[in-house]
Amino acid sequence: MNGPTRTASVHATRAVERSLAGRRHRSLAASVFLVYLLFSTLVGLVALFVLLFTILRDGLPYLDPTLLANAPSANPALAGARPAIIASVMIALVLIATALPIAIATAVYLEEFAPKDRWWIRLIELNIQNLAAIPSIIFGILGLAFLVRGLGLGPVLLAGALILGLQMLPTVIISAREALRAVPDSVRQGGMALGATRLQVVWREVLPAAIPGIATGSILGLSRAIGETAPLLMVGAATFVSYNPGLLTQYTVLPILIYQWIKLPQADFQGLAAAAIIVLLAILITMNGFAIWMRNRYERKW
């Protein structure tokens, strides 16, 4: 009785060993594939690091208080980016005041109140999806036709900010809707069962619970708008602005100033452009970092 059983179990053990040992020797195809994956990852990383390295190398010597405090000048020793930095910040503020509330309200309506089975609601949803994929230069043309010329605003900061806001709407709406959808239905049911109206439940429970997700999406949308150039070129952002911009004055923003400086022949301006890129990067990394921090800090497990 004992003999055959033991033999069988020894066989089984060996089979297991063999199959486990087999895991150590990857087939050639698998190795090639892994190398390919690693290589693909490195392409992106290397490109990023080369870019960062050159920019830091060229820009750091020029990164000084003059860059932040002075206005652009024909003399590279005196040239700064102050009006552009101020304009970029002002645009961000206008976006926060106009586009964000509209986008969040739209998301709340579509997600919490809209009759989802109606054709016109589906049409709106489809349009928002499509708008998110439209090239930014098209938004620029729209802004030129309707805001700058149609409304007669002229090539002022407000027009540029509004068109960036329009461009930002679809992405923020979509991310805000996702954040609202992540709030479990049990929260809504729990509130409604207590005799609250749908509006009260949304205002007091659903929206606060979705705020971290909405904020993350909003900040990412904002930082994209801050780095945007093409639509602003269309709506006539100036390249040389030596005064502090107002809502209804000509303006330039950091990306356009960078573009302008790079075109100049003097080597010093190339360095200034690199320094301005560092400033822009710092602003964007700070905003994205804040978004990530918000997400981790307030993330909820349901």
């Binding site: 479990p184 049990s186 929260v187 049911q189 729990g190 509130g191 069962a193 207590l194 005799g195 619970a209």
Partner: peptide
């Protein structure tokens, strides 16, 4: 619903 309260299958505190 103010007069007739409800408790759900899965606890759903806010």
């Amino acid at each position: 619903r103010k007069r007739i309260g409800m408790v759900f299958q899965k606890p759903n505190p806010f």
